Amino acid sequence: MVLISVISINILSVDINTVRKAYKEAAQDRTKVETFNNLLLKVTKKDEATLVAYKGAAIALLARQEKKVKDKKKLFIKGVSYVEHAIGKSSNNIEVHFVRLGIQENTPKLLKYKGHIEEDKQFILKHFKDITSSNLRHYIKDYILQSKAFSDEEKTVISNQ
């Protein structure tokens, strides 16, 4: 019972705003990937879907640093399995769709992980107005405004919300 409490407290102590910031930094700076991954080391597929999605993103980012193509692919697939598990667990969670979109948009075509870009984009556009967290709203808005997946018209709509 004590062990479960300690593990739960550790997971609960991971601040989602810290995770978001670490993800953004890791996506832009390879030297910050390890820090992002370490933040989510104890997250399992049994945890809250948003954290599971970010754990998948951390693993996918680690894959970029592997030397051998076989190792890159294996690690990337592991990361994607976390993201897809999070989508299955919480398909109405905008942040999970956002994480998957970010991975898909920045993944090389040869990995063939681009099949849900339009679905995730439309989900985010449809539900953006429903985001209650100002931190999450700002975070997703910043991504949309620099993303190639969104048209100028879609960016304008989001800018005005």
Rank of each mutant, 00 (worst) to 15 (best):
D15A: 12
S133G: 14
V83F: 02
A63V: 12
I16Y: 00
K68P: 02
L3Q: 14
R100D: 00
I7E: 15
I144S: 02
Q146K: 10
S151F: 15
A60I: 01
A27I: 11
E153I: 15
K141L: 10
N135T: 15
R20G: 07
V33F: 08
A26C: 12
S13V: 12
A22N: 14
V33A: 05
V157P: 04
I59S: 02
Q104P: 00
E34P: 03
K70A: 12
Y54V: 08
Q161G: 01
I131M: 02
N135C: 04
V33E: 05
M1C: 13
T107W: 01
H127F: 03
I16S: 02
V69K: 12
L125C: 01
D142V: 09
G88M: 08
N17H: 08
D130W: 05
T18F: 10
K148Q: 15
R30M: 04
V99Y: 01
A53N: 12
L62G: 08
E34Q: 07
A86W: 00
G56R: 03
Q104L: 04
N10W: 11
R20S: 06
K155A: 15
I131V: 06
I158D: 02
A53F: 06
V157L: 15
D120P: 00
R137C: 00
I117T: 07
Q28A: 14
N37R: 11
T156N: 14
Y139K: 11
A27W: 03
N93L: 11
L61F: 09
V69Q: 12
Q161S: 05
Y143C: 08
V2E: 06
S5K: 07
I11R: 14
N38Y: 09
K72W: 07
V52T: 10
K73C: 04
A149D: 10
F150A: 08
L12M: 05
K114Y: 02
L40E: 09
A26Q: 09
N93H: 13
I94K: 01
S5D: 13
R137G: 06
A60C: 04
I59Y: 00
D142H: 10
V19D: 06
S81D: 14
N17I: 07
V157W: 14
I4S: 12
T107L: 11
L51S: 06
E119G: 03
D47C: 05
A53T: 10
F128N: 00
I11S: 12
K112C: 07
I9M: 05
Y143R: 07
K121G: 01
E154T: 15
E153C: 12
F123I: 12
E119N: 02
I124N: 07
L41K: 09
T35Y: 07
D47I: 06
Q146S: 10
D130A: 10
S8K: 13
K121C: 04
G56A: 11
S90F: 03
E25C: 07
Q28S: 14
K70E: 15
